[in-house]
Design a protein around this nucleic acid. Structure first.
Lengths: 184, 184
DNA sequence: ACCCTCATGTAATCGGTTACATGATTTA
DNA sequence: TAAATCATGTAACCGATTACATGAGGGT
């Protein structure tokens, strides 16, 4: 059994979650929800859709539109559903590889004048606050709905919210410490 | 001015931070420190080193070793230092794109039996705890040292520590909620 | 003799992004 | 008739990883 990139399974999951959706629809969904913790570009999504169809994990059905342009809709096959279940059960390889544009800069900020360092921390805080506010709004919005997917979405958003809040605390602490004891 | 990937500047930063180090040394440093928030593989590091030398941002000096094999050591040029300072001052593009193998699975866990879901959360918690313990140890180790680089390293580690702790809280809350109100 | 550390690379592949192209249909 | 939405793609590139190759010197 060949091992595909996680993005392939993510697309499989999307198809399973929203059966009989077009690629176009799935792109929109991916951009709104999944994008925060597993970005998938439009091109990639279509490519994976092709692959999944070739593997027989999803069925592609052409639907002639009477008013809207005709489209292809997808749904998972029994095989696809089993593969998806298997993938969900395998723990992700290693810890989450995350790349932080802020931290990599911060790490090299020896020699950076204190004032600049404060500015860096400031714009990081701004970005975090924006993210926190968005996620807070999303959590609130989903709190009123009780279907499984809404609950899961809310919990995923909460994960991001807690993360952002913790990092905002870190920024505050760090600013304090650097004020009390500037570096060099 | 051409725009290079952040990894190029990260390597430039490494050279600047540890002047007259060999590629081999820098690989080791990158693997230990930078790896958590900006992984750079050995191959990539050597490639970027080449590029930086060609650009004149670092000087490469061949050092014949009498006992150890000869090596090439690097140091930033004045131009390189200015470029590095500029890069440090530019805020990172967008928010940090992070990919979570756990969250992407969790997001598709509709239909996953409650027991499995608990197992997923459990192994996520294990990974987080391991990360938290490592970072805690690193923070403690660096707390005793007061040079700029140790302080920055400690603060960067604290960033990861706080993040891991917040996520562990999230796991606990989520396990509670799913116990009180299972999904479907 | 053999393995470990030091030291630096090449080759192949791939996952993913950016930019662009196309065309139909609906709405203003 | 012009813009917006729906819908799907191609081409090119690139950053990064994996796997492998090589060789010298020191330690057991």
């Amino acid at each position: 059994m060949e091992k595909l990139p996680d993005s392939a399974y993510a697309v499989l999951g999307l198809v399973d979650k929203l059966p009989r959706s077009s690629g176009y629809d799935l792109v929109a969904v991916a951009q709104q929800s999944l994008d925060r913790f597993w970005p998938i570009s439009q091109t990639l999504l279509y490519r994976e859709l092709q692959r999944l169809a070739n593997l027989g994990w999803v069925n592609a059905t052409r639907v002639a539109g009477r008013r809207l342009p005709s489209k292809t809709v997808y749904e998972t096959t029994p095989v696809g559903q089993r593969v998806l279940a298997d993938w969900l059960a395998t723990p992700p390889a290693g810890v989450s590889r995350f790349r932080s544009g802020f931290l990599v800069r911060f790490f090299f900020s020896h020699r950076v004048p204190a004032e600049r360092l404060r500015a860096m921390l400031g714009s990081y805080r701004d970005a975090l606050q924006a993210e926190r506010d968005e996620l807070r709004a999303l959590v609130d919005k989903l709190a009123s709905r009780h279907e499984p997917s809404a609950r899961i979405g809310r919990l995923a958003a909460l994960h991001g919210l807690k993360t952002a809040e913790a990092r905002l605390d870190w920024v505050a602490d760090t600013v304090d410490e650097l004020e009390r004891e500037p570096i060099e």
